[in-house]
Design a protein around this nucleic acid. Structure first.
Lengths: 231, 231, 231, 231
DNA sequence: GATGAATGAGCGTTCATTCAT
DNA sequence: AATGAATGAACGCTCATTCAT
């Protein structure tokens, strides 16, 4: 399995960078360094100056790759969703049961990344955590619309589309597949965050993967794939 | 009904401000002015300087009331949730059916505010929109934990608790009431935002209050309050 | 005479500064310090940072007074022309002969300032030299038109107008009074500069105020105030 | 006439460039591209980076030809004056009357270039306009003296010398020939600029080549070549 | 000889904050 | 209590320049 992932290459929308970060050592260092730093100090206080210091380069050099810290965040999240899509395809192909495919998909989207299977320059455990904490800042901006036009969120939208299709396969009459999936994705992020910082907003039961369990059940019931009997 | 609301006074945790904004004209202008400005330019580019200009006061004066723009956002969101709690109590008291109470609560949390019933200095339509776009930035910060200790999120947590209690009244064995409610609240915010900016992530059907409908149904099914039969 | 000038106050167009520099000690220091520094290092390499260092203040403080170094230059030149206008009025009032008034005016415009009669915070000898070297940079810009609309050059234009009027008094049929005067003013600046740096472009005769002599003669002949007989 | 000019080759002082721009396609593109760009955005905001972009080359390549943007401006103006000298010689040779020669020279120096007779890589209409707006920035610098020693202004000085000689031919006792000619040259530039941006500083009469008329008359009177009778 | 990549240095600007009144 | 003035610190950005290929 590792072999498979080592070969993958995530393509990110060209508008998100000035110079392809994969194309040079410095580019990779910028990406991995930014991930480390955002993980450490948070996106809000993260600056190109601090990044330059931490990777022992200069702001000017970073600007050759990314137009702004915002675009860099878009790049990181896009990369994340691109990688997610790969994993999704990998773990659902050749699975005939749509319910099983949906179930696996939800697990993928809601589970915490615990080990770095893929050996890229990007630490997926950290990226997962950064996405949980910071990804919403990538679209809760006054520039959403223009970023959206430039294709900044297309991988994400694509992913939601794919899983929506599985839902429609199971229940063609269900009216809100996208809403359900985006609720699950964003919800899972929030729940992971709440579990760590605002536990009263969640219900984490020790020794159980509560978040995944909860969302799987919720989705299957919502689309009518599980029978419910009230008494 | 207006009469009831005109009398209400939302109490906000004292740690969120230095000087009670309700206590002076300037204080009120700071709050209402900040709301206008954040609504207009977004929280990210909002600064005390710009606020000072727009309300024709000075930065120094604003600092008498709020320690930082972050605390001001916490104040605004706290105020929002305090006001929500009032509305919640108002529309659920004397309703015997817990399912009906739950249903009304979800409606309250997921519907867009469309008119300013309460005549305070705060424009609730704008505040609702600001909460949708910016509230998550109030806790997705490196200061969550200390803010949380200071009680910055207690009103929000209380609100989630109250509705969780209704759920447990309906189904005492349901394991994830907080998770479900916080998912609904945050989810609804996202869906409103997506509807405006990233429509492919949602399923808005014209002439229908899709978001409320969707979440009501989702919740009731999740807790087993609606019978489902698969075929 | 000194007494007269000590009382004068030059009014400069309000669009050229953010906060009136005359209104505070810092403001005056910014103006006089900038004059010293521009005189020393030239306008091209002059920056607000260097100015801040030299007057032991900060860039931020300077920005309270001037929007940009360009606006500061406009302020200095405007001040210069305002001051020139005062001197002009002073040395032409009560002089009945228009030719004498014109003659004195040209002397004023073309002579080098050699002593600081006026005791303001501004060193007029230096300002004169700065105007000679840098004033044309105040209008040879892509922003001329907007600066002009804001009134940045109005004092200068007024001054030219006034002397043009004297010319028309002498010779009402002369068609190019403005052209002639602006040629003299800018020409004199250039000649002073050439005398110091590019002597082959001028004809300086020792012990003679050649520039003034030349321009006086040139003007009087051009407007037909001196009889010429060719042989 | 075109044939004559097509063969000319303007020699520019070798200190102004590192590698002869005429010697390669890239060199020519740098020169013509810089002219376009300076014409478009002005010399102040013009940079090698922008130039590199606009001619689809790199900064590094441009540095092979020119040491700095300042040297490039010196090159352009030197080229201009070299070309002017050619035109001057061409239109005065075989004209016996010195007054006629002077008259033609002034016309040459003061008229706007309206058509590209010479077919070089350099657009003379643009160059004329750039010289009007930017040429004074080539010597109003702290580096004048060293640039002058390097011969940056020698063509210009030579040109002034040549016309001064004509003046002395007409009136050998005239004391200020260089002053007069440099006043005319710089003055004409200013008047063209004023006509476009600060009309109140000039007197442009429609349908008349006022600038040339004015300066011709002024010069001839100044040197006593036209009889003036006062009444 | 020409170019792509990288960088040191510095600029203009703004922010959050403090002090004196 | 409210404000006007001032400032330290940092940010985003660009420039001129150099190096390696």
């Amino acid at each position: 399995m590792e072999d498979f992932f080592t070969k993958i290459e995530i393509r990110v929308n060209e508008n998100l960078f000035i110079k392809q970060p994969d194309s040079s050592e410095l580019g990779k260092k910028i990406v991995s360094g930014s991930l480390d730093l955002i993980h450490e100090i948070g996106f809000d206080t993260f600056t190109f100056r601090k990044l330059a210091n931490s990777i022992e380069s200069t702001e000017a050099s970073i600007y050759r790759y990314f137009e702004s810290k915002h675009k860099l965040l878009l790049y990181l999240t896009s990369w994340y969703w691109g990688w997610m899509e790969y994993r999704l395809i990998f773990c659902t192909t050749n699975v005939s049961s749509p319910i099983e495919r949906l179930s696996r998909s939800i697990a993928l989207l809601t589970e915490k990344i615990k080990e770095n299977l893929t050996s890229t320059h990007i630490d997926m455990i950290k990226l997962n955590q950064v996405v949980i904490c910071e990804s919403s800042k990538a679209y809760l901006t006054k520039e959403v619309d223009s970023d959206n036009e430039e294709g900044a969120y297309s991988v994400y939208k694509q992913l939601v589309e794919q899983i929506s299709d599985i839902i429609l396969e199971i229940n063609p009459t269900f009216k809100y597949p996208h809403m359900l999936i985006s609720t699950v994705i964003e919800g899972a992020h929030h729940q992971h965050y709440f579990a760590a910082h605002l536990p009263r907003l969640t219900d984490i039961i020790k020794g159980e993967d509560a978040i995944t369990t909860f969302y799987k059940d919720m989705v299957l019931k919502a689309i009518g794939a599980i029978e419910i009997t009230t008494n």
